[in-house]
């Protein structure tokens, strides 16, 4: 199929991009990597009056790894993050996850921020954003605001972002150096959207867990933090039995959908198994 007719507008600055979005009053879409947007257009599932192309905006490119945070611009590609060995060393969950986004050709083109703004509940970056409590910087002609990941996703492919806003950057606070993190997912084929993904961060002191975070993707209309399972881990001694228990708690806390690739029972089972496995890897890396 061919896309329905739309206007193509190339933004010359961030301010210009916001002006264009305002000009179409919510009927324009921001074009970054186009990995999700272009198929939606070609299937005629999306019918915007205009695309506002931000790929030419140099100030939105690149990423910066600080001592405590990772800053990613709006047109930074997945592959750029994947190829930074310092990120993998500092927060392996990110590297685990990014390597499982589509295939290399997709990672060469798709953007971190685009994935977050598209808000697919099975995607890696929205899950990582929830796992690490990321902060998004959103700009409109009226000004700039910061949105926390926990308040950003409000449904299937849906966020609190106003259609006249553009996310210019995302900041991922990084867990302490001594912590361990992991991202494990299960997909039917290499590069597919995961049926279920689990991210985990564990901090330990004196043989017991001082902090734990668990995020599960693919089991709800947004990625979900599973606080009940995190509570099981706090103060406990890391080990297979404990991680299995956390997995069982996750299974009771998620309410996945059924589709042709797996029913709710199967996805719940995956959430349980992958939670145990992710915690084991994270704990191993923390040690």
């Amino acid at each position: 199929m061919k896309a329905p007719r739309f206007e193509y507008r190339a933004a010359t600055s961030v301010a210009h991009a916001t002006e264009l979005l305002a000009e179409y009053d919510g009927d324009a879409k921001v074009l970054a990597g186009g990995q999700s947007l272009v198929p939606l257009l070609n299937f005629r599932l999306s019918n915007p009056a205009a695309l506002v192309d931000i790929n030419g905006l140099g100030e939105l490119g690149g990423h910066r790894l600080g001592a405590d945070e990772l800053h990613v611009g709006a047109v930074c590609r997945h592959r750029e993050i994947e190829r930074d060995p310092q990120i993998a060393a500092r927060c392996p969950a990110i590297a685990d996850a990014v390597a499982q986004i589509g295939h290399v050709a997709i990672r060469n083109r798709g953007t971190v921020v685009g994935s977050i703004a598209h808000a697919d509940p099975a995607a890696e970056w929205p899950g990582l954003a929830m796992l690490l409590d990321a902060q998004f910087t959103a700009r409109a002609v009226q000004g700039e605001r910061t949105i926390a990941a926990g308040a950003f996703f409000d449904g299937f492919l849906s966020t609190v972002l106003d259609p006249t806003e553009v996310i210019t950057a995302v900041t991922f606070p990084l867990p302490p150096v001594a912590s361990g993190s992991a991202w494990i997912e299960f997909a039917r084929r290499h590069g597919d959207f995961a049926l279920v993904g689990v991210g985990a961060v564990i901090e330990c002191a004196d043989e017991s867990i001082t902090s734990a975070r668990i995020v599960v993707t693919g089991v709800s209309d947004t990625p979900v933090r599973v606080a009940a399972a995190e509570r099981v881990l706090h103060g406990a001694q890391p080990g297979e039995a404990l991680f299995a228990e956390a997995g069982r708690v996750v299974a009771t806390q998620v309410d996945p959908i059924s589709d042709i690739h797996g029913d709710a029972t199967y996805r719940r089972r995956l959430a349980q198994v992958l939670t145990r496995r992710a915690l084991a890897v994270a704990a191993d890396r923390a040690a």
Binding site: H103, R189, H190, F193
Partner: peptide, 16 residues
């Protein structure tokens, strides 16, 4: 039909 794209109709790829 529920499998009208290659996201739902799963062909093996070179990675498989």
């Amino acid at each position: 039909p529920l499998t009208t794209t290659f996201m739902d109709y799963l062909l093996p790829t070179s990675a498989e």
